[in-house]
């Protein structure tokens, strides 16, 4: 089996000065490995205390019951040129230095524009009123908390855990039993993907990579 562990959230290959330079963190979703166990969904909910009705990651089945049926875990892909960031009127969505797309819940107006701009349906909104959805947007944080002080109660309550600050990977990728969901520095992730493809001798099953990271050459 090809190497599957990617545990380096920061680039260390560029000399001492670059040790603290942030990596470009990415997800890789391997549709040929996903077995639709739902472990990523449960782990995410548990780790981040995600409220009912919100799904920061979902396992979607495509072509169910037909030839070519596939499963794919869909988190926020933290796109390089994120459409949600482009349309957000209040700049509540922004890129961190490490490429993670973060939401500032103190600024979000809950308009829902990002939901329709996102190709993956990642933004989530609470539904608590018969007169419409109330509250601000919630989405996968890459287990990197929010703009609040790291490890503070407020960060924990609004955004969930901050595993990235602890030097850990997102919970969903950590618990994925088949390593269908790989997270980490883009270069490391791409190496894993290429190893898998070489082992398979054909197309790899990387889903939406070109959509999320289109400037990759």
């Amino acid at each position: 089996m090809a190497q599957t562990q990617v545990t380096i959230p920061f680039r260390e290959s560029e000399g001492p000065q670059a040790k603290h330079a942030p990596a470009r963190l990415k997800f890789y979703v391997d549709v040929k490995r996903c077995i639709e166990c739902g472990g990523c969904e449960v782990a995410c909910k548990n780790e981040n205390n995600v409220p009912e009705g919100i799904a920061r990651i979902r396992v979607v089945t495509v072509n169910e019951g037909e030839a070519g049926e596939s499963n794919v875990a869909v988190p926020c892909m933290h796109c390089s040129k994120a459409p949600c960031v482009a349309v957000c009127p209040v700049d509540a969505l922004y890129h961190r230095e490490d490429g993670i797309v973060q939401v500032n819940k103190e600024t979000c107006i809950g308009c829902g524009y990002c939901l329709y701009a996102c190709p993956f349906g990642a933004p989530q909104f609470p539904k608590s009123s018969p007169f419409g959805a109330r509250g601000v947007m919630d989405k996968c944080t890459y287990c990197a908390g929010g703009p609040e002080e790291p490890f503070s109660d407020r960060e924990r309550r609004l955004y969930g855990s901050n595993r990235i600050a602890e030097g850990k990977l997102p919970m969903c990728a950590s618990v994925c039993s088949t390593k269908a969901l790989v997270a980490g520095d883009g270069e490391e992730v791409a190496n894993v993907v290429r190893q898998r493809m070489a082992a398979r001798g054909s197309g790899g099953g990387g889903w939406a990579w070109g959509t999320a990271y289109p400037e990759s050459k």
Binding site: E187, E188, V193, G204, S216
Partner: peptide, 8 residues
Amino acid sequence: PIPPASGG
């Protein structure tokens, strides 16, 4: 496609 190595 094979994802590129650079990671973008």
